[in-house]
Amino acid sequence: MSTQVILGLFVGGLFGAALAIAALADPDKIIGTLRLKDLHAMRTIAVFVLVGMFGVWVLEAAGAAHLSIKPATVVSVLIGGALLGIGFGMTGYCPGTGLACAAGGRIDALVTVIGMFAGALAYILIYPQVAVPIERIADYGSVTLPEITKVSRAAWTIPIVVVGALVLLVTRPKPAK
């Protein structure tokens, strides 16, 4: 087996297990968060992002990060976020948690995964005529916030991580009696 296969299975295995243990692979927790009735998933996602941001900064400073920056094709990204948001709000699934929930015995998640294959097919079919022209509008390229603002990654990371951690600490839920 190639290194790619082993690394993929290793990282993916940990990610799938973490999604299940973190209860993000639970559509009821996701809908609870989108309805602002159950903030566990929102707080978990916030910690996930802050820890990742801190770690990526340290790795990049050490010259050990393998980054993959997505192109900022603003109009295409806004449309994509809206469509994905509609599906997310309907089902409580996204691509990763949909796969994880199907693996956890959820038949409806399996149907969502089938729907996702159909969505990918639709994208392939409309790509040349629809997606390509939209991607050309307001395309800023694969840039980062530190690059576009001409400040260091540290100047973005440290304030966001510190403020985020303080907000999470101050608003932490009281332990159940």
């Binding site: 997505k70 192109p71 469509l83 309907m90 996204c94 969505g119």
Partner: peptide
């Protein structure tokens, strides 16, 4: 709803070049 939602999820994820994992997190 699961099927229709799944369709929107992946169509949207491709327009956005990533989903809640690859683009958001």
């Amino acid at each position: 709803a699961a099927f229709v939602g799944g369709f929107f999820i992946l169509l949207g994820a491709r327009f956005a070049h990533g989903c809640t994992s690859g683009q958001f997190a």
